[in-house]
Nucleic acid binder design. Structure first.
Length: 136
DNA sequence: GTTCTCACA
DNA sequence: TGTGAGCA
C-alpha cells in the first residue's frame, strides 16, 4: 500500500494547485474552510496539498460547475480526516461498494437535476442526495 | 516572489 | 467570491 502513502503525501503549495485545478486561491481556501479538503501545513503555516487533495478539488469543481452548492457537495464528499482517510482504505469492502454505488447514482441524479432545475440552480438537490446515503 | 489571515467598496 | 492590506 505504499501507493496510498504517495497519494496522500503533501507535495505542492496552493499556487501549483491553482494551475492544476483552475480554481482561485480564494476558492481553494474557501473549500478548506468547509472541510471539503484537509491539506497539510508546513512549519510556516503554508498549505501543502497531496494528489488526493487535488483530485478532491477536481471533483468539487465539476460539481460546482453542475450547479451544486457547498452544502450539497458536503453530502457527497463527507469530510474525512487524514487518519480516517487511511482507515477507509483499510476498511471493509462494503464501505467501498456503498461509496461507488452512491457515486453512480449521484451522476444520474445530477444529470437529471441539472436538466430539470436548469434556471433556478440546484435547490432541492440536497434533500435528494441525503436520501442516497440512507438508502444505500 | 509566495502564501496567509482578515475584512469589506 | 473577488480583492487589497499587512505579515511571515
Amino acid at each position: 500500500m505504499a501507493d496510498d502513502i504517495r497519494r496522500n503525501m503533501a507535495l505542492f503549495p496552493i499556487g501549483i494547485v491553482m494551475k492544476l485545478t483552475d480554481l482561485t486561491a480564494r476558492q481553494i481556501r474557501y473549500y478548506e474552510q468547509h472541510e471539503l479538503i484537509i491539506p497539510a501545513r508546513t512549519g510556516g503555516n503554508q498549505r501543502l496539498f497531496s494528489f488526493n487533495d487535488v483530485e478532491r478539488l477536481l471533483e468539487i469543481k465539476s460539481l460546482i460547475e453542475k450547479g451544486v452548492n457547498i452544502a450539497g457537495i458536503k453530502q457527497v464528499m463527507n469530510p474525512v480526516s487524514k487518519e480516517s482517510e487511511e482507515a477507509t482504505v483499510l476498511s471493509e469492502q462494503s464501505e467501498v461498494k456503498r461509496r461507488e454505488l452512491s457515486d453512480a447514482q449521484l451522476h444520474r441524479l445530477l444529470k437529471q437535476q441539472v436538466l430539470e432545475n436548469r434556471p433556478g440552480r440546484a435547490s432541492m438537490i440536497q434533500g435528494q442526495l441525503s436520501r442516497f446515503y440512507n438508502k444505500k
